[in-house]
Structures are given as structure tokens and as C-alpha cells.
Design a protein around this nucleic acid. Sequence first.
DNA 1: CTGAAAGCGCTAACAA
DNA 2: TTGTTAGCGCTTTCAG
Lengths: 349, 349
Amino acid sequence: MRDDAVTPPDSPSQRLAVAGPPTIRDVARLANVSIGTASKALNAGGRLSKETRENVLRVAREIGYRPNDLAQSLHRAKSRTIGIISNDSFGRFTFPIVEALEERLAEEGIAVFMCNATDDPARERQHLDQLLGKRIDGLVVTARRADKRPPIGPLAHGLPVVYVFSQADDPGALSLLPDDEGGAVLAVAHLATRGRKHIAHVTGPEHFEAVRLRKNGYRATLAEAGLPEIDGFYLSGVWSEAWGREAVAKLFARRERPDAIFCGNDQIARGAVDTLREMGVRVPGDVAIVGFDNWDVMTLAARPPLTSIDMNLNALGREAGDCLLDMIAGEANSGVKRRPCSLVVRESS
Amino acid sequence: MRDDAVTPPDSPSQRLAVAGPPTIRDVARLANVSIGTASKALNAGGRLSKETRENVLRVAREIGYRPNDLAQSLHRAKSRTIGIISNDSFGRFTFPIVEALEERLAEEGIAVFMCNATDDPARERQHLDQLLGKRIDGLVVTARRADKRPPIGPLAHGLPVVYVFSQADDPGALSLLPDDEGGAVLAVAHLATRGRKHIAHVTGPEHFEAVRLRKNGYRATLAEAGLPEIDGFYLSGVWSEAWGREAVAKLFARRERPDAIFCGNDQIARGAVDTLREMGVRVPGDVAIVGFDNWDVMTLAARPPLTSIDMNLNALGREAGDCLLDMIAGEANSGVKRRPCSLVVRESS
DNA sequence: CTGAAAGCGCTAACAA
DNA sequence: TTGTTAGCGCTTTCAG
């Protein structure tokens, strides 16, 4: 292949048959200048006569020249490429993050290698190895996880790494997370402000740090509002609608009934409103509901539509991009940063 | 940083201050061999004394040498990298495809650049440009779309492209799609086999080709089973639970009532079962329901859990990977290929 | 203002 | 068995 370029200037026949993409050599030859000159023209640098510059650019355009980033990267020792390793096979949480991150980096002309490790350390190693071979300028690690993860590695010294929606068990690492506790505060304060006095909390499994943090926020806000923490009003289960339904049945089997329920995610919340409706309990009239995640598939389809806490995953992804860019530029950064959630009010509260 | 490894026995001062990752040169120097020899040793090729080979490998391991893929790619004129451009901002459909594709290609040591264009042609152009600069070996285009899309381009001649879950308006292109019509046949035949005689079809907007194809499958299967096509039993609306609820209300306001409903997606199906339950109609006793997409968030949370059609998106993604690999290897391929769906039976039918 | 040439890290053909 | 070298496509001095 690529047996053009070799055709000396005087050679009549230049079959471009199976040639690869045009190189700067091709441009230079066709524009009758040296390679160095062509390069200068294309990179808008150096002193050049307007004439030659324009000529080179014209030729380049005509033959569809596009610089080979591989060669450029080799020269610059910067690949303008980053990797992202995800462990979230479902993707509902990481997708918005990755999307925003990719968008942010695309603005800077940086491309993103996406790797899915699905919680398999061997696959993770393999992907990391490949990425290091590609000389990525930075790395993002993301996942839907219950708890801290072991730091990724080993990696080239000095490779910037950002953990997002995922926390590394390493104080030197930078982690970007939603403020789960603050989100819970938002939810419960909202309910309290609306005059609710008996606020329950139905949530997911306690081995999720997020569950523990949200519980803290819930309790702290009750205390702050001078509301009682009623025995049996905190229920930890799984992340499903079925659990939401079951939990509501449990809550209403007691003597003391809630007038509001803060749910650990929107699926639980939806299960809750469904059951309440079927029991003839009015939402929000008798019981107000707030969910978590602000997942439109749930919040908008529920009857009534759900008030929910939004983790602002897009913003999180974008900020991860910002951080990574800064770190690539040499800035140091570390620690666990939690970013605020927001309350989206709909008809369930 | 990295002031290990580099200490050659005799060299006095070696400031490697800001040195990058170790190169093959470093390996060769430390192993006291030429670069060529080191290369041979590392690439397991050529004739070499066991001794030197092992020595080189040991040194390489010790200093954490990893070949620079950029340099390799430059030499080989193959980047072992492909791009994927997606227009699906939501990700529910494309994510399983991308995931499987990435996994398939990772098996071959090929990395994937992920680009999201969100249906903006300018962004698509920009991403494509960047990918071509990176000298990708192949391209995958994917999207959740109503209809054919304009072919992507312009691109380097001979760049293999696969459209998956998305069809290019270009007969020379290769498109991989689920067999929507066949999926509908599966659903309706299943209902007919169960003895249902009055089968309705509630589906999404008709500007989706998938909607039209599924409708064809529905009608053809009714005819085949000798069942009547009842006026008003085909309802086209939007892809939401609310529409599923509304449509069921419409269907049951008529004199002639269905004993089965084939729904265009699982959200519609869920809306349907919810309303039926609330109307006191038994599912599947009085009315059987079949959905489409086999989206567990819907099928498993519905009461009863939904029978649904699975488009096998993982298999589709994997096959896209296979096709791309073949095309990269030089094989020609084109046309629209539809891959079978499968029926997943649960309690709603 | 333009050309020549070194070098980024690696492979492969050819010499020794 | 090992070393030398040209070259992949590009940028960047340094000469002319």
C-alpha cells in the first residue's frame, strides 16, 4: 500500500490506487515546496509569503489532507486522548456523567477511550494496560458502587486520575461525588416546610455508603426541624418498586402513620405512590412523597409525578472534565469533593 | 519522578527530571543490547539466545516498560483503534450495543473512541474529523432513530463503517438492525397460540419505521392465524405509560373488547396493565399483554411481570464488532441485515 | 522567506 | 546471534 508519494516528480503515472491517507509529504510535493514549509503553512506559524501559504492550504484542501494525530502525538509526547474506565454495566448513572465529560473534553479537542470493566479486576487491568500503551493524558474512573474501591493501578507516575461517582480508597486521589447527605437534607427540609410532622424514610441496602449518608441527612434534618424520629419509620431494603410497595404496607400496618415519606430512590418512591393510591390514601393530600435520582422514566410516569432529588450528574461529569484538564495542565488536586444535589418539585409533595 | 530504572551501572549523572515513560531505548541500554535486539526480544520473534531474551524481558518488567502504541501504529499504519459515533443521548438502547461491541473489540486489543453527537450534524462532523485524524481503523454509527439517516461522511476512502441500530440512506452501507417485524410476529403468534382471538396493538408514533414494521408483523400474523383485524384495535400514539393507560381506556370504551394487547414497548405495556388492574380486568386471565424491548425496569416492576420481546441488543453489538473486524481485515460487506428478536415469557400472558 | 535534517519510539530488513 | 539503519508522518531548530 501507499505506493504514491514514492513517485518521483517526473514520473508520469501516479497511481494512488490503494494509497493511505495523504501525508504532508504529498501536500509539499503537489505545492512544490519543502516539507518544512508545508508544515509551517499548515500550522499558521512562522514567516511565509502569503502566496505559498495559500497555495499549500489550497492543495491540502483539495487532496483532503488531515494531519496524522499519531505522528503529532509521538512528537509532542501528548496524545490529546484520555481514557475512561467504568464498572457500571447498567449505565443509568454513569451515562449522563460520561456524556457530559465527553462533551467537555471534545471542546478541547480531546478524544475519549471508553472501557467497560464490569467490576472484573482482570478486565480492568487489561484495559488500563491498553490505555497506558496508548499514552493517554489522563484517566477517569467511574462506577455505581456501594463503597470505596481500591485505587486503580499500577499506572505511570504522574498520570492524572479522577474518580467520579466512585471513591478511591486512597487519600491522595481525587473523587467527585454527589452530596448525598445534602440531598437528603433538601428532601426532608422540603417536607418539613410543607408542614409534615411524621416523615418516614424508605431506602436501599445499608452497605451503600449513599444510604448511610442520606440517613444521616434525614435524621439531622428531623432534629433541626424539631420533629420526632419515630420508631419503625426508617426502613432499609432494596432498590426496587416492590420494596417501595412492601415498605408502605408495613408503615401503614402500624398505629402511627406517616404523613410524608422520603424515598431512597425513584423506584421505591414509585412503588410507594402506587400502593398509597391503591389503598385510597391521597398523595400528596394525606402523604407527601419525595424520591431520589430524578429519573424521568419513574418521576414522570408515576401518578402523581414525583418530586425528587437530582444528583446533577451532568454537572458532575463536566466538572470531572474540568478537573482532569487542570491536572493535565499540571495542577495538583486531591480529596473527596461532594457536589450539591437539587430538589425538583412535582405534584407528589 | 521516575528516577529508578535509569541508573545505568557506569553512567555518572543522569538527570531524567521530567522523563516520560520508559522507551525501548531505555530497555536496550539497561540490558546492554542494541535496540533491534531488544525489539526482537520483546516481540517474541526472530532468533535470539534464551539468555539475552530473558535478560531483556526482565529489564523491561523491572522498569515497567510498555511499548508506545502511537509509535507502533505510526509504523504499522494501523491504529488498532475504532470510533463509535452515537446520536442517542438517552442511552437505553445504544448502551447495551456499545457495551457488547467494546467487549468484542477489547478481545482483539482494539480500543474504542466514544463520541456523542446528539443528533447535531456539526458535532458529528467535528467528531468524525477528530477520529479520522486519529487514524481509526473502523467506524460504528449508532442511534435511536425514527428512520434512515444520511450516510456519515465524507471519510477516508476505504474506511470500514457499520451502522447499527440505525440505517444509512445508502445501499452500499452495512446496517445491522433488529428484526422488528419478526419480533411482532413472535408476539402475536404467542398470543394466538394461547387462544386469544381479539388481539389489539397499541404502539408508538408512525414516523418510526419500527412502528410500521411491527404493525406489518402484527397484521400478517393475525391473517395467518385466521383472526380478524378489528376496527379500532390498532392505536398509534407515543412511547409512554400515559399513552398505554389512555389507549386501554379507549379500547375498553368500545363494544368489542380485546382479550390480548400487543404493545409497542414496555412502557406502553406497563401503562396498560396498570389500567387494566385498576379497572378490575384480570391479566392475563381476561386480557394477555405482551410488551417490546424487554426492559427489566419495566417488565419486572409491572404487576404482573411483563412478557416481552427482546431485541438482543447485546448480540447485535457483538455482531457489529465481528463485521467491523472482518471489514478491517479486508472483507466487503453491505446491505441491511435484520437480526432476530426473541420472546421472553412472563406472567402477563 | 524557504529548505534540510534531526528526532519522537518503534519495527523490519539487512549487515556483520 | 546480534547490531545498524531506514523510515512511519510530523514538528522544529538551524542553515541557506
